[in-house]
């Protein structure tokens, strides 16, 4: 219904400090990587034009601060996001464990209309490091993603540019889907509400 309109997709990247959010965004948009760590303060965004299903869309990728003391974004920031990217470091168990609360916090802040179907994408980053350092198995990550309603999962390396392009293509695609759905809602501002029904829950999860 909006094929002629120019679309702007707002994508938000969340995850613990140091997992490589900024690096992933930089690799994707600028094809650059630096081994130096500079904590992100507040938030920062880059844009990139992408083709999704023969459609040119502009992706606005918001990189956020993982460090609590640098988080300064108001609730308004999260509203209107089309996709949320959750990043963890496969060599750091804690960064995986916190994905749950990153996801939950995001849902609360953004209050999307349909939280269970809001598009998330999970990236397990830094797979270029030695296998012996690996702390979170692919299987474990995938099980988690499945339990959260089949979130797409990618194992990436911002350093070696592994899977980065791929992951962001999926992000763009899912974001566009969300954007189109949101429009649909706006056209029909009175969505049918299934009342208080547990069957809405995915089969598994917590």
């Amino acid at each position: 219904m909006s094929s002629r309109k120019k679309v702007l997709l707002k994508v938000i990247i969340l995850g613990d400090s140091g997992v490589g959010k900024t690096s992933l965004m930089n690799q994707y948009v600028n094809k650059k990587f630096s081994t130096q760590y500079k904590a992100t303060i507040g938030a920062d965004f880059l844009t990139k034009e992408v083709m999704v299903d023969d459609r040119l869309v502009t992706m606005q990728i918001w990189d956020t601060a993982g460090q609590e003391r640098f988080q300064s974004l108001g609730v308004a920031f999260y509203r209107g996001a089309d996709c949320c990217v959750l990043v963890y470091d496969v060599n750091n168990n804690k960064s995986f464990e916190t994905l749950d609360s990153w996801r939950d916090e995001f849902l609360i802040q953004a209050s999307p209309r349909d939280p269970e179907n809001f598009p998330f994408v999970v990236l397990g980053n830094k797979i270029d490091m030695e296998e012996s350092k690996r702390a979170v198995s692919q299987k474990r990550a995938m099980t988690w993603c499945q339990s959260k309603g089949n979130i797409p999962y990618f194992e990436t390396s911002a350093k070696e540019a592994i899977n980065v392009e791929n992951a962001f293509q999926t992000i763009a695609k899912n974001a566009l889907q969300q954007e189109t759905d949101a429009e649909f809602y706006n056209d029909f501002p009175d969505p049918i509400k299934i009342d208080n029904d547990n069957s809405k829950y995915d089969s598994c999860g917590c």
């Binding site: 749950d100 609360s101 996801r103 939950d104 609360i108 209309r113 349909d114 939280p115 208080n196 917590c206």
Partner: peptide, 12 residues
């Protein structure tokens, strides 16, 4: 939007 009840209860 009762799907947000869970997230709220799971975070701090």
């Amino acid at each position: 939007n009762d799907a947000l009840v869970g997230p709220l209860l799971r975070v701090q």
